[in-house]
Amino acid sequence: MNVFRLTGDLSHLAAIIILLLKIWKSRSCAGISGKSQILFAVVFTTRYLDLLTSFISLYNTSMKLIYIGCAYATVYLIYMKFRATYDGNHDSFRVEFLVVPVGGLAVLINHNFSLMEILWTFSIYLESVAILPQLFMISKTGEAETITTHYLFCLGLYRALYLLNWIWRYYFEGFLDMIAILAGLVQTILYCDFFYLYVTKVLKGKKLSLPA
């Protein structure tokens, strides 16, 4: 555990909690892509199956349980409790265009051809693109609430910090996981455009809106 990984995990946790609180306090999931949230629930479920087979640390187990629990709670709020506020018409990204190629890639390129390892790889690949329905929705409506941009910033920052963690681990532990690193790089690059808008607009007190 190094400082980049810890702050990455905390940034990830902050993102998840910001989103849950935003929906809960405003009693609305307007502007939130339910499809991205379902994908994140799938990501956590397929990645953390090792909760059933191996114990790494109390930190590891509790974070995994919190992430999975919050992911399903978010999906529940969007599709059940506050369904009336869900903006399905704008959440029109075709997720099969992500899930099918990512599934194929996980079967072809993995560390070990076993069910658990393929599902772990699938979750890594899927996570890297799971935000696309959300970014697509924002580009379609042309705007995002400020609290939603804070959520996206923390979520993007988390994988960027993990990149620093992997550089650290390579130098100090000789640890190298190319699948995680390349997927993490793709994931971070997808946020770059958003990071630019966040810094130039939201941090200066303006609402994030895209030119028509």
Partner: peptide
């Protein structure tokens, strides 16, 4: 390098 497919990261 251990090949015990344990992923300690989240």
């Amino acid at each position: 390098d251990s090949d015990d497919d344990e992923h300690d990261e989240l």
